[in-house]
């Protein structure tokens, strides 16, 4: 028969409880050593994770393919149609590109394409159910740092929240902790595109209640004041606008332009603008 001493039992649990609460408090307050410990853990596990990823990625791809088989067929035909349209537009855009570059130089505006971009592969998603992040195979040794914007050809993906030697974690737009200062396409109204718990869409907050925002128009990063994102990166499309009489806020839902569920390759932008000292209203607070 196994006899457990009650006092010893309690002391173990109390010790673990106190240690956990101390760690939680230190991390919430933004303790440097804890951030460092996360980086070390990523670096230690990175070589094993790289091998494991190579072994397991076919399994993940297969499961992903099986569970999304129905939608993939529709998506394929839709994408073919879009590709044809985009090929035509791309040819037209070439002419505008050089003109735009010249004008930007004349006006001395920060130009997104001038950003030094680091190409990276998405190696895994979030291991938890309450955060929306991806891990990329580039880290501080490649020049990736916290706060940098992450994009694909379609638009903004999110920002780097943690970087170790060979890996970095990007917080996706849809994470509730993510907020991006944006400007609307037509009315040039500013707001903050905010992630929503468990939703694939975003909410546009802090918009002038009298502003005219139309469904279907795009929103771009504003790059204004001390925003951490360079300006003019496409972020999302306005999906729904509900304006109720007497209410001080419009209910605006945005659909991200990037398919955040099937990210494979991304680019990390080294912003040409100086690092922000203060966040724009409602945007993510800078990491200390």
């Amino acid at each position: 028969m196994v006899v457990y001493r009650r006092g010893n039992r309690r002391s173990v649990l109390i010790l673990l409880f106190v240690t956990s609460i101390t760690l939680i408090t230190l991390d919430v307050r933004g303790s440097g050593p804890i951030t460092g410990a996360r980086g070390v853990a990523h670096d230690v596990v990175a070589p094993i994770a790289t091998v494991a990823d190579k072994v397991f990625s076919p399994v993940g791809d297969w499961v992903g393919g099986v569970t999304r088989a129905g939608t993939l067929k529709d998506e394929n035909s839709r994408l073919r149609k879009e590709l044809d349209e985009l090929r035509g537009k791309a040819a037209q855009n070439r002419a505008f590109e050089s003109e735009n570059e010249e004008l930007s130089k004349l006006l001395d505006l920060p130009y997104t394409e001038d950003s030094d971009a680091i190409a990276a592969r998405v190696v895994s998603g979030s291991p938890g159910n309450f955060e929306w992040t991806v891990q990329i195979d580039r880290g501080t040794s490649d020049g990736v740092a916290e706060g940098m914007a992450v994009v694909t050809g379609a638009g903004l993906v999110g920002r780097i929240v943690e970087a170790s030697g060979d890996r970095a974690t990007a917080l996706l737009l849809r994470d509730p902790k993510s907020g991006v200062a944006v400007v609307t396409e037509s009315a040039r109204t500013t707001g903050v595109a905010q992630g929503r718990t468990g939703e694939s869409t975003l909410r546009l907050d802090f918009v002038d209640p009298t502003a005219n925002v139309d469904e279907g128009e795009l929103v771009f990063t504003s790059g204004r004041d001390n925003s951490r994102f360079p300006p003019s990166i496409p972020v999302a499309r306005v999906e729904k606008v509900a304006k109720k009489r007497g209410e001080l806020q419009q209910d605006i839902v945005l659909a991200p332009l990037v398919d955040l569920d099937s990210l494979e390759f991304v680019k990390v932008l080294r912003s040409p603008t100086a690092a922000p000292t203060e966040p724009a209203t409602g945007e993510d607070a800078p990491t200390p």
Partner: peptide, 21 residues
Amino acid sequence: GLVIDLFLQTPLGLSALSFAV
């Protein structure tokens, strides 16, 4: 729990305490 906490964005110690309990 502490080790998996190092790979999550939630505060360090949350999983450690939950798993211990």
